[in-house]
Design a binder for these strands. Structure first.
Lengths: 136, 136
DNA sequence: AGTGCTGGTCTCTTTTTGAGACTACCAATC
DNA sequence: GATTGGTAGTCTCAAAAAGAGACCAGCACT
């Protein structure tokens, strides 16, 4: 099978999936992508993929997130089923956040993207510098 | 080789990459991820992966993007080297946007994530419904 | 009695995004 | 020749999201 044709078909199928065949207002794929494409979502998923963390630990781990956004991002990730929240009756009570099975399965493709970013951030930085130098 | 240990090592390495070994303020991986995790970036990259599009075509293709955000997202994608912008001297002049080699190489892992979203959006929808039903 | 740790919420300000009017140019139409 | 329509945007103002930091309750330790 011609790999070019195969790739084009794959692209078209994903394109249709992402545009929901023209019904943009109610596209589940875009909905899911937007849920994980927030500013802090991917970072927290990456952190929790390493091991479960407590609220205060995450706050110290990511010092430039505000407490408000940490609360809200964890809430959203929990709502979408990526993160499990468990309260332990210690004193004071501690709360542990961990990835669910769904979260772990999402981590795999996310990992691919982060690996790409790790390999290519020099190219992006160079492109940005060249663009800015050309008085973009 | 024990695959669990291998996976843990891979996770730790990516975690380090994303946290830049503690230097959060200047982490190139987070910088790159944030550049492509905007609300419209991934959608436009997916569209341009299918074929080049002109400005007005993209606007009609994604009817719920504002002209202002389309302009700005394309500008940002161009600045980071994912998108090529070419003006044709027709009357009136037309502008074509296409993926660069860097953009096409980024499309590959992005595609994985979109495929995951396509396969799992039911699970996310169910999780969300269950969470909301439990008066989250 | 004061201090510190837990996991948050509340309010205020700043930044980002969205909605829509407006521009300039030209071609074809009425 | 005035009107309409298509090109790719910009500009302004309102709404939504995010950031900064004060504040809270409960308990342990000093």
């Amino acid at each position: 099978m011609d790999s070019k044709i195969f790739n084009l078909k794959a692209k078209l199928e994903l394109y249709k999936a992402m545009t929901n065949g023209g019904n943009f207002a109610d596209c589940p794929v875009r909905d899911v992508i937007q849920g994980i494409s927030g500013k802090w979502s991917s970072l927290l998923v990456m952190a929790l993929a390493e091991k479960p963390y407590r609220f205060g630990e995450l706050r110290r781990l990511v010092p430039d997130i505000s407490q408000r956004m940490l609360t809200q991002t964890l809430y959203d990730l929990q709502r979408d089923g990526y993160v499990h929240r468990e309260v332990f009756p210690t004193k004071p009570p501690s709360v542990e956040y961990s990835l669910t099975d769904l979260g772990r399965s999402m981590f795999l493709p996310l990992q691919q993207l982060v690996q790409w970013a790790e390999l290519n951030h020099d190219a992006v930085r160079d492109a940005r510098a060249a663009f800015d130098a050309a008085q973009g």
